[in-house]
């Protein structure tokens, strides 16, 4: 695609702090290269705001290579913008046309409160992870990685589930603000591997209990999470979580 400079209008959510009601602010930006990433475009806007002695727009970002899961932005109604399987940092400005108006909002969910502007608090995910997203290992020397045989099929499925970066796009995209895709990826990645067996039942029960406690909604299988997931985690994992939860709830001695 040929290089082009874009003139755009940005409608960005501004919110001073968690208790502020917040509002949209409109900013014109000009001379945006189609080769910039969306975050680089935000950087250009922020430099302009700083030069004008205005408060820059707060947004989360870290790795800028699509693996940290920080750049949570709802762009024109889509989690991480219009491209499939990308984070905001990997979204390039060639996705837009000259003269476009782009609306940028933070993730909206009661379990992800807005801290400032586009920054939300996703520590609810950390607490779900702490409730059971781990394996126990013996102390002493590290074991050989291939000590326990793992079926290739299961290794691949576990690896695909482990690709989840905990960005929260699934929650942002779900009409019920459900965290089922995230929790199902975390539960699946261990349920499929021999190393995950000792905590298998408690993990499913405790992570689901924590998910409910954090105020996420339930899953109605609309599939919006899978469509928006930058790591393309499959909703098949949600079915697996349901199986794990039923096995733990109805078949095990836990609880």
């Amino acid at each position: 695609m040929e290089h082009q400079n874009l003139n755009l209008t940005l409608k960005v959510w501004r919110q001073k702090n968690a208790s502020d009601a917040g509002h949209f602010e409109t900013y014109p930006v000009s001379g945006i290269s189609t080769e910039m990433s969306f975050l680089e475009m935000m950087d250009v806007l922020n430099e302009k705001l700083i030069a004008e002695k205005k408060e820059p727009i707060a947004f989360d970002h870290d790795c800028r290579e699509g693996i940290c899961g920080m750049c949570s932005m709802h762009i024109n109604g889509r989690a991480h913008g219009p491209w499939k399987g990308t984070t905001t940092c990997q979204l390039h400005m060639r996705a837009f046309n000259d003269g476009d108006t782009i609306t940028v909002e933070p993730w909206r969910a009661s379990a992800f409160p807005v801290l400032k502007d586009l920054v939300v608090d996703r520590s609810s995910f950390d607490r779900i992870q702490r409730a059971g997203g781990y394996v126990s290992v013996n102390t002493g020397n590290a074991k050989d990685a291939n000590n326990i045989p793992v079926a290739k099929e299961n290794a691949d499925l576990a690896f695909a589930a482990a690709a989840c970066i905990g960005c929260g796009a699934c929650v942002a995209a779900c009409k019920n603000a459900s965290a089922m895709l995230f929790v199902s990826a975390k539960v699946s990645q261990y349920a499929l591997l021999p190393q995950g067996q000792p905590e298998r039942t408690t993990r499913a029960l405790n992570m689901v209990a924590q998910m409910d406690k954090e105020g996420f909604g339930s899953c109605t299988n609309t599939g919006a999470c899978e469509a928006e997931c930058p790591k393309e985690i499959s909703v098949m994992n949600i079915a697996r979580l349901n199986r794990e939860f039923m096995n733990a709830g109805f078949m095990s001695n836990e609880g």
């Binding site: 917040g22 909206r108 009661s110 379990a111």
Partner: peptide
């Protein structure tokens, strides 16, 4: 009960929604 509960998890709505780009209308309208 679930339909009413689902409305409580996003107190501030989005200004722009994806419509039918990410899910079918009837899956959201049960």
């Amino acid at each position: 009960a679930l339909t009413l509960d689902h409305k409580t998890h996003r107190p501030v709505k989005y200004a722009v929604n994806p419509g039918n780009e990410t899910s079918k209308w009837y899956s959201r309208s049960m």
